[in-house]
Design a protein around this nucleic acid. Structure first.
Lengths: 193, 193
DNA sequence: TTAATTTTGTACTGATCAGTATGTTATGTC
DNA sequence: GACATAACATACTGATCAGTACAAAATTAA
């Protein structure tokens, strides 16, 4: 190497991630990307490949970040029930306080690209499976500790919570009444007994 | 009027609906539309306005059709519990047997356009509210008839079912294991006691 | 048959798209 | 300090985008 990069790759990728997250794949142009990433077009291609490859890198960065956030929220809480409650209500608060509503990058990609691109079908599926596994671990901990006394399969319960989280995240994009989502969350949480 | 239309407007709109449903707004070009609708570009503009207006008409056609399908499924069944079960399992079967997975046009639009276009935020929200109202009516019927003996608010329950249906529809786009969705459905249906 | 009017098909518009060729600038090696 | 190398900025490529101008074709009214 003779001349060092003038930009920070991680920082540029982070900017791309936020843009794709906000606008999706098709609606984001290379011009949008160059201006938000603060670098020129050939720099993008040399550092990240073409638009699809950059998108994939951005999504991978997101899923790592997202999974770690969820893990933290589930671990840094005495009560597993309370952890799930604050996970759901936190999501609702976040989404109501931002405009436009970005939702979850992985879910957005599941809708936009997964049906037409197997790579993203797999990538998004694996993330949901991973979230489900994290949820399951937390539920099993709670059962073990006696906090949860359920006769339900923790795996099935975890899967249901993933489905509910997806449903809430998507529904929030239409900005329904708070009561709609609040009541839904309360009802879903009755499964944790 | 001097020269009659050579094409059937409803038929052309139906074709546009299916195309937007499958590919979304951005990924569908005017050239795609002309070839699938079987009419020329100026005919589209004179009959339906620009691309966004055509999309809106297509979505309205879809939500009408979708709502009526759901109504039928909930009414043409002795048992309300069974009706909900067959609604959920029917969705899963349909989605597994088609490629690419189209999901729900309204949900797709909620993800792609609602966060950036208030018109579609409202349109998609109203459809979900309507579905929730239909669900609630069915649940109240079941409570009245004695089929359902729950101490839960039927409204909250209906809203939760809407959230779950959205979550399942979106998750199916990543083609998870059957067991994942099957277990989720079973768990969700335990709310109907 | 003629005039008026609307739809049709073709071909075009300027803008924007993703991706790249090219020459300049900056750095490390010798 | 000369040379090799890689990143940089600019400007371009052909393709495609949404939308439209325009003239030919088709129909009804007179």
């Amino acid at each position: 190497m003779v001349r060092p990069r003038e930009f920070d790759e991680e920082q540029a990728l982070d900017a791309a991630m936020r843009l794709f997250w906000e606008k999706g794949y098709e609606a984001t142009s290379l011009s949008d990307l160059t201006s938000r990433m603060g670098i020129q077009r050939p720099s993008i291609y040399s550092a990240f490949g073409d638009k699809k490859e950059l998108f994939e890198s951005a999504l991978r960065k997101y899923t790592k970040m997202h999974a770690s956030q969820i893990r933290n929220k589930l671990q840094h809480n005495e009560s597993v029930k309370e952890a799930f409650r604050s996970l759901f209500t936190g999501l609702v608060n976040d989404e109501y306080n931002q405009s436009p509503n970005k939702g979850c990058f992985c879910i957005n990609t599941m809708v936009e690209l997964a049906p037409h691109d197997e790579k993203f079908e797999i990538l998004t599926r694996e993330h949901q499976m991973y979230l489900s596994a994290i949820f399951q671990e937390a539920l099993e901990r709670a059962i073990h500790s006696g906090e949860l006394t359920t006769n339900m399969n923790p795996k099935a319960l975890a899967q249901t919570l993933v489905v509910s989280l997806i449903g809430l995240t998507v529904l929030l994009k239409s900005r329904p009444n708070r009561s709609f989502v609040d009541h839904s969350i309360e009802t879903i949480l009755t499964l944790l007994k």
